[in-house]
């Protein structure tokens, strides 16, 4: 690149960087940036339908936010979302850590790893709406699960899964667990395989037990990936929609205890209650934004290291 002729040629090539970015930029601006700006704008307007009458749009400042934050509904649905997320996530992280430790432990030499990994990842690819529909039919009052429990003599009358708060929430949480523990296992495995093997060997020579190795070496070194998994899962949990929506037909029954925040957003979108939908979207955007920033920082320091 010493002579001027060549470097101007390089500059000419480099223009193609901009050209190749055009499709992404165009699609991003049209389908994500403009909608995002419009969503934020709508959150400052009174804009909804009352029966056949259209109210607004009128600029009302922060009134939508005041209304949404002071209504009990938001907190109820936020609580539902968090409880259901925790019901699925706690077993998910424990089982995934356990499985990842087993899969990567050279002294165990587990056979059939490919098979097990294939099976535990499978539910992640299943259409969540069809999976929820399947669970609805399987756990319905005269569905196969009740039929099996009755044949085994465990219960005498069908258990109404969808009329009990705990049972409904647990079913949603359980489905989330099933759909995500395989994915988490594989992510954690990648993290564990990245740990310097000589550390394990040294610990073993020093007579450390498998438990000590796991808690004193694996877990601390795994912390960045663990935090990554927890936060991305939390972001995913905030977006929880398909499963509870289909399982309860959008009602969030019993008594709106399985209604998640996105289900509520969906309700506002259907009823064209744009002001409230906008305020709710912006709140969710801020929460995910803060969480993403943590992930972003985390992955950034990872590459710098």
């Amino acid at each position: 690149m010493a002579n001027g002729g060549k470097s101007s040629k390089v500059v000419r090539y480099n223009r193609w960087g901009y050209y190749f970015l055009i499709p992404f930029t165009a699609a991003y601006v049209i389908f994500q940036l403009i909608p995002l700006i419009d969503t934020v704008t709508q959150s400052f307007f009174e804009n909804y339908r009352s029966g056949l009458k259209q109210i607004g749009p009128n600029f009302i400042g922060l009134a939508n936010y005041v209304k949404i934050l002071s209504s009990g509904d938001l907190w109820q649905y936020a609580k539902n979302t968090m409880i259901i997320w925790l019901i699925g996530f706690i077993p998910q992280i424990i089982i995934s850590l356990l499985l990842a430790a087993w899969f990567t432990d050279p002294s165990l030499r587990l056979k059939g790893q490919r098979f097990f990994k294939t099976v535990i990842y499978l539910p992640n690819l299943i259409m969540a709406s069809a999976f929820a529909m399947l669970f609805f039919t399987l756990f319905s009052d005269n569905g196969p699960v009740n039929s099996i429990l009755m044949q085994l003599g465990l219960i005498s009358t069908p258990y109404k899964f969808f009329s009990h708060v705990a049972a409904s929430r647990c079913l949603v949480g359980f489905m989330n667990f099933l759909m995500w523990f395989g994915n988490t296992t594989i992510l954690l495995m990648a993290g564990m395989l990245g740990i310097d093997q000589s550390l394990f060997e040294a610990a073993e020579v020093d007579g450390a037990t498998p438990n000590q190795i796991f808690f004193r070496i694996t877990l601390p070194l795994l912390r960045p990936i663990l935090v990554y998994v927890i936060i991305t899962s939390l972001i995913g949990g905030l977006q929880m929609f398909d499963v509870p929506q289909i399982l309860t037909d959008g009602t969030g029954d019993p008594a709106r205890t399985t209604m998640t925040m996105i289900m509520w957003l969906n309700k506002h979108l259907y009823s064209k209650n744009y002001g409230m939908a906008g305020a709710l979207s912006v709140l969710l955007f801020i929460i995910t934004g803060v969480l993403s920033l943590i992930v972003f920082r985390l992955t950034k320091t990872d590459t710098d290291r």
Binding site: I30, Q32, L36, D38, T39, F241, S281, G289, F296
Partner: peptide, 24 residues
């Protein structure tokens, strides 16, 4: 800038822009 920007918007869920998207 482009690289950082794309990474930064990676986590924005489609749901939070759904309102503007549907209106558009």
């Amino acid at each position: 800038f482009a690289y950082t920007f794309i990474l930064a918007v990676m986590m924005i869920p489609t749901q939070v822009t759904a309102l503007g998207f549907i209106r558009l």
